[in-house]
Nucleic acid binder design. Structure first.
Lengths: 118, 118
DNA sequence: TTTCGTGTATCACTGAGATAATACACACGA
DNA sequence: TCGTGTGTATTATCTCAGTGATACACGAAA
């Protein structure tokens, strides 16, 4: 399920791209699974087909999905993080939630702890 | 240190806001520490003062900083996550880096593991 | 071949955001 | 008290990312 928050500063196509990427990496979408067509998803989310097309194009460029005219869009195999990384994320999320930390704050501290680039 | 990436889809004022928020939450900026003036930071980053002012206003609305005319902008006390949360984040970051995971993927899996809203 | 459902390309429009210039209001220190 | 440096507000202008609508190109199946 994908939702669009009009209040959010990030544009719709970016929200769609992010959410799909999250779901694929988390393993919520199986490999080779068919995604909705651009028209279908555009109608569901009340946006233009070009908006969906742009999100799909970005995901394909990132190697997460595979698109082809006529035959639709599918999740590429060999995607998703390994189980250990996901388990590590789950421990982290649970620890912060017990302390009442918000998602934004959690993402914030991860970015902050991530070593700076050289 | 704050940097602006013109390639990034998020607008400059949002990048500034995010980076300052990250640094405050991570404890990189001490409580009561003075931030640069809007004119100073605007000159450093080559943006207009209004852009900095907007980022500062957003941070104040979020309760992270405290601004007052004439006396500048300061980091509010009682900010930053607790040590245990930060330690947890550090463990998480280290675990994923050992596996060669990128920052985007790390944030992605955190969002994915974060429980959905009701 | 024809049909239908795909993704893709194009184009004009809109609005959010950035800018620049300016003026104002307040705090602090000399 | 006055001067300086602060954040804030306003206004007008400009740019361009994102959008929406539409037409095109391709693939699969009947």
């Amino acid at each position: 399920m994908i939702t669009i928050d009009d209040e959010h500063p990030t544009p719709p196509f970016e929200q769609i791209r992010t959410q799909l990427a999250d779901q694929i990496r988390a393993g919520a979408l199986e490999a080779d699974q068919r995604l909705p067509s651009v028209r279908q998803l555009a109608a569901d989310l009340q946006v233009a087909t070009g908006t969906i097309a742009r999100a799909y194009a970005a995901l394909e460029a990132a190697g997460l999905i595979s698109t082809s005219r006529g035959s639709g869009t599918r999740v590429r195999a060999d995607q998703g993080l390994d189980d250990e990384s996901r388990a590590s994320a789950r421990r982290f999320v649970q620890a912060l939630q017990r302390r009442g930390v918000s998602l934004d704050d959690a993402l914030s501290v991860v970015r902050a702890e991530w070593p700076r680039l050289p």
